[in-house]
Design a protein around this nucleic acid. Structure first.
Lengths: 251, 251
DNA sequence: GCATGGATTTGACTTATATCAATGACCCAG
DNA sequence: CTGGGTCATTGATATAAGTCAAATCCATGC
């Protein structure tokens, strides 16, 4: 009966109707005039894989939503130790209303398109349109659950379980974006380098590499090239991840 | 320029004016009639140290705010490995509007008084009173920052740094509740057993004990009995914690 | 084709933390 | 004051993961 919200897709498969902003981050229930105001304050920004979107501490005058690609939130210690504290997939939200400066480094790990909203007008709109705040609260609570599931992973799981968990989570979110029949073997492309995986999992990249090799050797995953992963038996992977095998979600 | 929000007290030192609900969780900006509605739906519950408030998966028909004492949120793996994913101090909020069941075990680690609000009426009030939702969003974002700072601790800090961080955080929140002059040595009572500390820090209780002894031996902390800690030099403790020594906060 | 350089894998060895096992300190009941 | 219980400390040893180093893979441009 544990929390499985991290694994739960945050993006519903239906699109946002006629909404000109195609991600569901904030506009799912917007009326025409509110959409017009969102349209006004929005602009797109693109980044190449590896580029930094914003540095921790920098002034940040926008909030944003990931349209395509993947970004990470990273915290760095003075001596250079790094920990990824958030993985942003399409439809995820970045930025905190009411906060002046970025709290984390935001980095594009693949080519990335973000839909940005200038912060001041966005905050104003939030004040007059409660459901935007409500939606933001919902998303923030989901992220909090995800962060807490990650705390369990970082504090208590073995290296092998960590790798299995990461692959399972990426596969689940991937499946949520591109639904497939239950019976197919799951196939994904890892959107992270070994180094990024190590920074997300609290390991070294050598350990990541060794454990991926071990899972491959044991037939839990099949690897083609460096990034392409096939999961012949998803339940087996979940067993290896240390999570409840049902993968059941909370409400 | 890292995020330090975990350390930042969430309770302002001023009290909530004439508000009959003395914690600031939700009522700071309430009008008279809203306060009346909150009064109606609220009730207090007390727990002894060690008691379980609610089990993960149980139906939860209230949300609540800690009045006095300390509670923890814990996640447990099937084989019994446990990780504390949240520490609830006075003024902290528990429960998620819109969620039927508890996602974590909630346990009183000291004697505890909580102010509970029946969930359905609370959710209704949220719909008609946007600032309650806004306040909740703020608190949730603070908790998310705290969780992310904890991810850095769990993923990257050494056992010694973990212990120093925990003591620093408890000391800071303690100081926020009972302000004192800058020059005094900080004194706190650890509200957690060694076992609870180990579950919070992703360590074993033996390692916790050893590292506390080491910090004592090195003069970073002074210990009287099992629980009472004096911190002669707070900056020294912060150095040991691996955080920026300024302890500076983001906005 | 071939050189270049980044990403990844693999190997040998070290180390921080876990594990297993005693021992010690404190508290309360009788 | 004494015995039993809980919590905490300390010691000896094991092990998972880290560190340092080398080899391999693979994409890219020349």
């Amino acid at each position: 009966m544990q929390n499985k919200t991290l694994s739960e897709p945050r993006l519903k498969s239906t699109d946002c109707g006629d909404c000109p902003i195609r991600h569901r981050a904030v506009c799912a229930r917007c009326e025409t005039d509110e959409l017009a105001r969102l349209e006004e304050m929005k602009y797109y920004r693109s980044f190449e894989a590896g580029q930094t979107v914003i540095w921790s501490g920098d002034r940040m005058d926008f909030v944003a939503s990931v349209v395509t690609g993947i970004a990470t939130l990273t915290q760095t210690m003075e001596d250079g130790r790094r920990q990824i504290v958030g993985l942003l997939l399409p439809s995820d939200f970045v930025g905190r209303p009411g906060r002046e400066c970025a709290a984390y480094d935001v980095t594009a790990t693949t080519d990335l398109v973000m839909c940005c909203f200038r912060k001041k007008p966005f905050e104003d709109l939030m004040l007059t349109t409660p459901h935007i705040g409500q939606r933001l609260l919902e998303m923030t609570l989901d992220e909090l659950d995800a962060a807490r599931e990650w705390m369990l992973l970082l504090g208590r799981k073995t290296a092998r379980e960590k790798i299995a968990s990461l692959i399972a989570i990426i596969a689940r979110r991937h499946a949520a974006l591109a639904p497939r029949r239950e019976t197919d073997a799951v196939q994904i492309d890892l959107p992270l380098t070994r180094e990024a995986m190590s920074e997300y999992l609290g390991l070294t990249l050598e350990t990541v590499s060794r454990q991926i090799s071990a899972l491959k050797r044991d037939g839990v995953i099949v690897i083609k090239g460096k990034r392409h992963v096939t999961i012949p038996d998803f339940d087996r992977l979940l067993e290896e991840s240390g999570d409840d095998s049902d993968g059941g979600f909370l409400v």
